[in-house]
Design a protein around this nucleic acid. Structure first.
Lengths: 195, 195
DNA sequence: ATAAAAATAGAACGGTCGTTCAATTTATAG
DNA sequence: CTATAAATTGAACGACCGTTCTATTTTTAT
């Protein structure tokens, strides 16, 4: 009988949801397993029934978060035609969907010498995903003659760091009020790479 | 007799030096008072002879770091004449002198709900300093007719977030290899604001 | 209804945390 | 040389950390 007989899957999701919020608000180290236990309403011990340990739980959340971000982008990407429009679209996608507060915890974990080698590697692989998405847009723009020929890797890093820097503002300001800023950054950037 | 009779001032500086390194490497939470004690060679208890607590020690270091950054900039600022040159100079000043790793600990401390209200306020005031320096350059450029008239506050935030984003790369890459990138960011930015 | 399996709780572990405090050593002043 | 004040130590505190383990409750299959 291959019908799922038990259903603690929702419990697991509840825990992940609360853990996501806590890690986002307080960072990795400052969020304790006790915190997650209290917030989710399940005992501390039970969290270890679903997750091997705190570190793996965090990495799982980070992976899931980044995967969702990327899938959402893949979903809306066809809405834009030219590369310039894609870049504007991407900026807003980052503003509204890139989970800066959670992902910040990744740096924390990665910079801790006691973190497992594997977790650090997995987090590093995540950081590569958005860069790949930016690069794809730039490549398209060049191939279609919309952008100048130039150093794609460098451009990728430049737009990536700019959007990343702007994302820091999401901690303290309303997302909606930042739209202008994100768009203007793209405008300035395009001014230098468009033909 | 107003001559300083005892000299534990050097001890204090030694502790601050080691604490600076540890906070930079491991962040605020992950650096323990024990770590600082071991690294400095003085007992844990003695650290509390010089500093009220861990939080105040960190804030002191952050303030000192930012003050030094600003003074150094004030020192070299006259080397540049036009505002554009100042912006290039500032980018490199940020690259080589802005202590991103330490200051990152400030975000950690500030996002911890148990941090004292006062410390968070002091850290916030620090974050304002570089923005003021950027704004001054932009204002000068406009007043001297070198830059277009535009939204100075917005420009300040845009260049500030870009440099801040680029600074994240200092964790993983050689400073020298980043010079190009910082300069190119300024070039692109200037392309949009120069007359 | 019963036995087996899954889900959950909660106590307990050794360890580390930031902080305090009394005791001791060291340097200075008279 | 002695008394005093500064500098420094190290043990001790209660609290909390991530994790483990055993016991208990709940669900499922027969």
């Amino acid at each position: 009988m291959n019908k799922r007989r038990y259903n603690s899957e929702t419990t697991k999701l509840e825990i992940m949801e609360k853990a996501f919020l806590l890690f986002s608000q307080k960072g990795y180290t400052q969020t304790s397993v006790s915190d997650i236990s209290k917030a989710s309403g399940y005992s501390k011990g039970h969290i270890y029934y679903h997750f091997e340990n705190k570190e793996k739980l965090f990495v799982l959340l980070a992976q899931q978060t980044m995967k969702e971000w990327y899938l959402k982008w893949m979903d809306k990407e066809p809405d834009f035609t030219c590369a310039s429009d894609k870049l504007y679209g991407m900026a807003l996608h980052v503003l509204y969907n890139y989970q800066t507060p959670l992902l910040k915890g990744g740096q924390e974990l990665a910079s801790n010498p006691e973190s497992s080698h594997e977790s650090v590697k997995q987090l590093y692989e995540l950081a590569v995903i958005p860069m790949g998405a930016y690069r794809a847009i730039l490549v398209q723009g060049i191939e279609e003659g919309e952008f100048k020929k130039g150093n794609v890797e460098e451009w990728t890093v430049l737009i990536g760091t700019w959007l990343g820097g702007l994302c820091q503002l999401t901690n303290t300001q309303e997302l909606h009020s930042l739209e202008r800023l994100f768009k203007n950054a793209v405008s300035i950037f395009l001014g230098s790479i468009q033909k």
